[in-house]
Design a protein around this nucleic acid. Structure first.
Lengths: 329, 329
DNA sequence: TCCTTATGTGTAACCGATTACACACTTAGA
DNA sequence: TCTAAGTGTGTAATCGGTTACACATAAGGA
């Protein structure tokens, strides 16, 4: 491996001068700089990030903590983060925490030990205290926080929106899928939907799912049709849940959207591939990831002094699990 | 941050002794070891990985190169890699190369600069030369190689299997979706299918898709039904392609599997959520990831001298886009 | 002309670990 | 009793960068 010393020797200068040329800091004579640049090219020298990181106590690495990359919502988020970060020459150490505090702590430990510059966390239901006393900034993603900067979508509005669209399209006996009670984002949309249903004096039932996995959603779906067979509209807590409902409905010969309307939440890529394609509330996952990355970078640059929350809007994506209506108001 | 020097000072020994106790190397008196362990706990000292990595020229970081995490096949792969690696205390720097050689090179550069211990690459169609002259081992995943260790599923057998199952179930005018010609894995399954169709003297047509994205698959699907309306069986190059075909068929009122059978490839999580659930050839993505990680670790431990290829079996997952047959032979 | 400031460069300390080497003390065997 | 091997520990070099500081020279102002 060629080191800065090799470059210095070949260019006939000291390592300090090479370092200054490399980082554009301090005085370096124009001629010297050119000579060094040339030498660097000739030797195809690349600085050792580890050595750099050791001295500066900061690497070009960012920690990204996710619940589970296999949940189709998160790859979008992760790509958004990565694309923004990569434009700023940061790289990602990614960890899946599986909503397991031990894993989460273990990853945070890794982040510390590797001198990451910052962390973006999309994990939920974890105690905040693991994120205290860290020497780098933390941005929460897909999660609200009063104490840390965060980026999330407007769950309350999303829930209301789902309810309103469902009501407008004539469902009267609505069933709400309620996501894991410990997830604030899940509860926001749930509350939003309830608010709106109450406003319109619409009857509804609730089914709680233990997690956001498809397996749990399937169970809930089967149960729903047993317990509340008269249901003519389901507002799901996420698209995976909606898919399970759709599946179960078709299996039982219930026609969608004629007899049963379904609205999902998230708009994961799968949703448009379902049949019929799923109407849903879209969270701009990719953009959320990008925004979180931007926010973290601003924090690092000291452009923002206080913590800041960014709320992104959601929107209704009309596909074919809801009936058509005339006016678009 | 507490350093090894803090520990040494408090325990009244030298840093060398602490280091030896920490790594279990060289002689350390039992009493001294206990004292050091106690001190480490009291100070909750964690060694700085960066300093360690600088001296040893090896970190506990592994580079993972993927085409695009948003393609639902890859999260499975990535989780397999991560789970195995994490059991061995390795962490992942993940990069999405988007089949873009520039990005690929840039990530490999990052890997070098950060002293990664090894790399697992699931990128395709890239020139091998970027992987030459590296100071760490590289394992290819979902890709065959004559010069490097690799882990992949048996594409030829998978293609044959798809064709056989389709023939057994009575399709006579089959259309093959051919994946990107530059992807060896895509071509293997394609060739396998053709082999089998030829053996059975079955007619077939071919549609080539430019990429594995859903957008391209949709185009191909629409075109397929225009060009070959008599088709009664489609063997797709991946599940996303199969989903597009299924979608288009249902839109056109073609009943699946009665009039048209479809077999996908991969068995991504989405496949069972489609309606009807997709029959497909399952690649054990998660296991492939784990095997690749295991292989890399063996390589690092010097347990394997030569390069080694691991081929994992695929299997037919019968769902409901294919018709039932009596005997299961 | 003298002094201050700007420019350009080198020496050496430093970041926090690992380890080669030196040294001291036991213990065992001849 | 002497020596060699085994045990236990410390000092200092090392990994490859960055930067504080010192120093030399040139330029500008009084």
């Amino acid at each position: 491996m060629t080191t800065i010393r090799d470059v210095a020797k070949r260019a006939g200068v000291s390592v300090a001068t090479v370092s200054r040329a490399l980082n554009g800091k301090g005085y370096v004579h124009e001629d010297t700089r050119k000579l060094i640049d040339k030498t660097i090219k000739e030797l195809s020298y690349k600085p050792n990030e580890v050595a750099r990181s050791l001295y500066k106590k900061k690497s070009r690495l960012i920690g990204l903590l996710l619940p589970d990359i296999r949940n189709p919502f998160f790859p979008e988020l992760a790509r958004g983060v990565e694309d923004e970060m990569q434009e700023h020459d940061f790289r990602l150490i990614i960890g899946n925490a599986d909503e397991n505090p031990k894993k989460e702590i273990s990853y945070i430990e890794t982040f510390k030990q590797n001198n990451v510059t910052g962390v973006i966390s999309a994990t939920n239901q974890t105690e905040m205290k693991h994120f205290e006393d860290l020497s780098f900034p933390v941005v929460f993603l897909d999660r609200t926080s009063n104490h840390y900067p965060s980026v999330y979508a407007d769950g309350l509005a999303g829930g209301k929106m789902a309810a309103r669209e469902m009501i407008r399209r004539g469902s009267k006996r609505i069933c709400l899928l309620r996501g894991p009670v410990e997830l604030k984002t899940a509860q926001d949309r749930f509350k939003g939907a309830i608010d709106e249903l109450c406003n319109f004096n619409i009857n509804f039932n609730v089914m709680t799912t233990a997690s956001f996995t498809f397996a749990d959603a399937e169970k809930a779906a089967a149960e729903l049709f047993e317990k509340f067979p008269e249901t003519d509209g389901v507002i799901a807590s996420n698209d995976l849940g909606a898919a399970a409902i759709l599946h179960e409905a078709l299996k039982r010969g219930i026609s969608v959207p004629e007899e049963l309307q379904i609205i999902g939440y998230d708009d994961i890529p799968l949703s448009r591939l379902l049949f019929p394609p799923l109407s849903t509330i879209r969270q701009p996952a990719y953009d959320m990831g990008r925004e979180a990355a931007k926010l973290l970078i601003q924090l690092l640059d000291g452009e923002i002094s206080e913590h800041k929350n960014i709320q992104l809007p959601v929107r209704f994506i009309e596909r074919q699990t809801t009936r058509k209506v005339e006016n678009n108001g």
